[in-house]
Design a protein around this nucleic acid. Structure first.
Lengths: 200, 200
DNA sequence: CCGCACACGTGATGC
DNA sequence: TGCATCACGTGTGCG
């Protein structure tokens, strides 16, 4: 508003009497530029651009973010539902994962030679365990080439699998073992299944 | 920059000579208020707020949105992986295998004696066939007691299953066979499984 | 004192 | 012609 910045009558105002009006000005210009850059970036990211207005951009951004959050929630719900279905669709009811009676010392052995992986499991059986085990193996990229399954009393499976070379570098035999343990309802902690202990 | 907004020399400027400096002023104030409101809404939505700066808010918003998009992509990938399993899970959906090369005459045998059901399958292998077959058997109420699987060339499985008595009355061996056929990608009509029928 | 960030009023522009 | 939006320079409080 100051028509005359020097304000002759006022005392300690800015002494911009000399020719440097450009210190604060440049800073303000840079700030404005940064803000506009951010705004244009936002506008480039958000697909729903109703208008080019600053306020509209911010509003659309908010709407888009809420939409994204909702989609994430839906996806996660479906994910959980799907996994539940996976675990219980085969057999009708879901056995609670807690309270698992270890009748015998469970056995989870994973050995690997070249691209061939031999897996031997013997543990307490429960509904759907065979299915989930096969699912787990496939999810790990292990293609079952030959296997013998026995479910009379405990659940026992001996499988020879071939695995994709790409995943071979990533997957450790311990990883496979842990995955199988978790799948079978055991804690997934190797300490709870002593490897060298007299298993079964 | 105009120090002298009235620009005495210029002619038709704003006629703000009278006492209404408040038409455009109020509009500008409203606009600023809307913009600030949107900004505060944004700040309230975005959880990652490093600083309260306007530019920082916008930057954090951009980062957060990219993060959300990435999470959505990951979830959708997992969904698709899971949905593959899910689609193979249900017996009733027809997986369009569009092309299945019958290398040998496929074999789908189902025999039953008392509560014991012997199943023998030998057909062309395809990814997920083992999993879907196990799923199908379990969904039919057939609990695999012992089975031998070989997937070296074709897909072969010999399984001994025990089934629940309730379903035993309902399920026919032919039903089981049809379900297994459909699951394996064959039309489900026994007539189409004629060994010599050139499928595809 | 200075750098920074913000709010303010104002001129200009597009519809 | 009004109305809405924007860019600009500036004042001001805070560290």
């Amino acid at each position: 508003m100051g028509f005359f910045p020097e304000r002759t009558g006022r005392k300690n105002k800015v002494k911009r009497v000399s020719g440097q009006p450009s210190k604060n000005l440049m800073a303000e210009r840079r700030r404005r530029k940064r803000l506009n850059d951010r705004l244009s970036m936002l506008r480039s990211v958000v697909p729903k651009i109703s208008k080019m207005d600053r306020t509209s951009i911010l509003g659309d951004t908010i709407d888009y973010m809420k939409e994204l959050l909702e989609r994430i929630n839906n996806l996660q719900e479906e994910m959980h539902l799907g996994s539940n279905q996976l675990s219980l669709l085969s057999i009708f009811n879901d056995v609670k994962p807690n309270e698992i009676v270890v009748r015998n010392s469970p056995k989870f052995d994973v050995e690997r030679r070249d691209t061939d992986t031999r897996i031997e499991i013997c543990c307490a059986g429960k509904p759907g365990l065979l299915l989930s085990t096969v699912t787990t193996l496939e999810a790990l990229g292990l293609e079952i080439q030959h296997c013998v399954i026995s479910c009379f009393n405990d659940f026992a499976i001996q499988a020879s699998c071939s695995e994709e070379l790409k995943k071979r570098a990533i997957l450790d035999t311990e990883d496979i073992k842990q995955a199988l343990l978790r799948n079978a309802g055991y804690g997934g902690n190797v300490s709870r299944v002593k490897p060298s202990a007299g298993q079964l």
